[in-house]
């Protein structure tokens, strides 16, 4: 009998980082399934390809840093980054674009900062933002809903397109509703809906995808992997501000439901902004953080150069997190008020 000498507590809740990450990956599956259902095999290929790249890059860097490779790969954080980026990419993104994106995400945005938990910026969004700036053409070619193009290119055809064995057929590109809205010019809402072919179809497809993300997000909430603060704050802010502008000029501004269900809103609110390493720390901070992201999404979408804005909004708020954290600390038990500011 040798007695162990350790410090309390002596028990822990079963579960570890890998488990948490796997849960999050699991929760993205409904969204992925919806994307595949509505837009073909592209998103699945993207996700898998990105995952392979993520594991390779992560393993290489960890090896360089002389850390146990298996131990770190098992935390699934690289795979999660890959999944998130893969979901955000257009369905027929060329393979090398994904490669560049994953390199930036894993090597530059994550490992160079010291690895999991030390990175100030959301790796998937750093990768995405860089791609958007560097390869605007490839990054804005979204696929039409399968129901529109009529035929669903098979897995093999998709692979061929992505790995550039065959060129991207014209029928495989289509403006997203957010694009359409952005470029509507002088058209009013009513005219837009009446004139643009297929807008209704793709609107419906995007709504379904958003609902699927919402489902996954609720799962995370139930499993207490995320708290409600960030998603609710984002959706609330976006709803309020879009509601305000829509109310003031309904023919020119999109309705709140449009903003809540189009683009990466749901994905961002539940899966990207909630990335714990880069989000605000306290509950109070998370509310402010989420609210600002919601506002920024609307501002960039409405008056910025890019059709979607989740990546930039999240990255901008990542930048503000240290500051937010200093000013949104919880009130400790027995204290009259919370400490604020930078001290010590």
């Amino acid at each position: 009998m040798t007695l162990i000498h350790t410090s309390s507590p002596h028990t822990g809740r079963p579960g570890h980082v890998g488990g948490v990450m796997r849960q999050v990956i699991l929760a993205t599956l409904p969204g992925l399934a919806a994307l595949v259902w509505y837009f073909g095999w592209g998103p699945l290929v993207n996700v898998l390809w990105a995952s392979v790249l993520a594991l390779v890059f992560e393993a290489a860097v960890i090896k360089l840093r002389r850390r146990p490779v298996a131990f770190y790969l098992k935390d699934y954080s690289a795979v999660l980054t890959a999944v998130l980026l893969g979901l955000a990419l257009p369905p027929y993104t060329p393979w090398w674009v994904t490669l560049v994106g994953m390199f930036v995400a894993i090597v530059l945005a994550k490992q160079l900062y010291g690895g999991l938990g030390q990175n100030p910026f959301n790796p998937a969004m750093v990768g995405y933002a860089l791609l958007l700036i560097a390869f605007p053409v490839q990054m804005t070619q979204w696929a039409p809903p399968v129901s529109l193009s009529g035929d669903n290119p098979g897995l093999l055809a998709t692979l061929k397109v992505i790995f550039e064995l065959t060129p991207l057929p014209d029928a495989f590109t289509h403006a997203t509703p957010l694009d359409t809205f952005k470029n509507k010019g002088a058209l009013t809402q009513e005219e837009l809906w009446a004139q643009v072919a297929g807008l209704k179809d793709s609107f419906g497809a995007w709504q379904a995808v958003s609902l699927a993300y919402l489902l996954g997000g609720l799962y995370l909430l139930v499993r207490r992997i995320i708290t409600w603060h960030i998603p609710v704050a984002i959706l609330f802010a976006l709803f309020m501000v879009s509601g305000f502008f829509y109310g003031s000029d309904p023919s020119n501004f999109a309705p709140p439901l449009f903003h809540l269900t189009m683009g990466a809103t749901m994905l961002g609110a539940f899966f990207i902004a909630t990335d714990p390493a880069t989000a605000a720390t306290s509950n109070k901070g998370k509310l402010v953080y989420g609210f600002c992201i919601g506002l920024l999404i609307y501002i960039i979408r409405s008056w910025g150069n890019y059709p979607d804005a989740v990546a930039f909004a999240v990255l901008l708020m990542n930048l503000a997190v240290p500051f937010l954290d200093y000013y949104t600390r919880p009130r400790t038990y027995g204290h009259k008020k919370a400490n604020k500011g930078i001290r010590g």
Binding site: R224, P276, A279, T281, R329
Partner: peptide, 27 residues
């Protein structure tokens, strides 16, 4: 009481904060 598994990096998941009875920020 199995020996504690090796510690990993803090991922700032905030679980600790949610359960702290003193409302501290354990992370």
């Amino acid at each position: 009481f199995p020996p504690a598994p090796p510690a990993q990096n803090c991922i700032r998941c905030g679980q600790c904060e949610q359960v702290c009875p003193a409302s501290l920020l354990p992370q």
